[in-house]
């Protein structure tokens, strides 16, 4: 049985915005709490909820009118006692780490003292979760990165990072959804599109998804790219 997650601290941000906060930290425990609470709100507030935005430690609910928070407390405890949900979607994401795409690999090698091969291995060695989406449309902040790969962001952000570039910055890894300026250390590129407004599913990632990276060669990269998989 899962330990019971305390009801988060609630606060009205404006007339139609209420913020629920868990502990002030980036952690897997918080991630699970935030995910469970987001699902809970979707169910409990379905008639009142416009949408919600989750972060590392908060769930912010945009509601049609003021709601009573008090009943949610008991409902939250009841829900946790009765269900054991929490199945995340697993996405396997191909990445080409070829030098052509891994623009900052030298910098990452210098900072970490790891070889090119080690960096790839460590980056692919674990599952990540989409902790946050923001900064750009569909930009996933994936945590948590192995501490061996911690590299500060570029002092001077690049003027242009091409869409689908895979980067590391601080304790996280992420993928640029659109061409944009950016300061993450770029170590590869995925052949997948993250944001396609005309696609059936406009966004590749959703909050809470589990993500695993696997390596593809440059040839495979271009094959996948041309097939549009």
């Amino acid at each position: 049985m899962q330990p019971i997650i305390d009801f988060p601290h609630s606060m009205w941000i404006s007339q139609h915005t209420v913020r629920f906060a868990f502990n002030d930290e980036i952690s897997h425990t918080n991630f699970c709490a935030v995910q469970a609470f987001s699902q809970f709100l979707k169910k409990q507030l379905r008639h009142h909820l416009v949408e919600s935005v989750a972060s590392y430690h908060t769930v912010t609910a945009y509601v049609k009118q003021k709601i009573d928070i008090v009943p949610l407390r008991t409902q939250w405890l009841e829900m946790q006692a009765s269900t054991n949900e929490g199945t995340n979607r697993l996405l396997k994401i191909p990445v080409c780490y070829d030098e052509e795409f891994a623009l900052d690999i030298q910098r990452v090698m210098d900072f970490t003292g790891l070889s090119f091969e080690d960096i790839k291995t460590v980056h692919m060695s674990k599952s990540y979760y989409v902790y946050l989406i923001g900064f750009l449309p569909g930009f996933p902040y994936l945590g948590e990165l192995d501490s061996k790969l911690f590299v500060p962001r570029l002092k001077k952000p690049r003027v242009a990072v091409s869409a689908s570039s895979v980067g590391v910055g601080g304790g996280q890894t992420g993928i640029y959804p659109v061409d944009s300026p950016g300061g993450w250390n770029i170590i590869g590129k995925t052949p997948l599109d993250l944001f396609d407004v005309n696609g059936k599913e406009p966004f590749l990632f959703a909050l809470g998804d589990e993500v695993q990276f696997y390596e593809v060669t440059k040839q495979q990269f271009w094959e996948m790219k041309s097939k549009g998989v």
Partner: peptide
């Protein structure tokens, strides 16, 4: 554009 803020829009 409502409904896409959780995707960063």
């Amino acid at each position: 554009r409502y409904g896409y803020r959780s995707f960063g829009i």
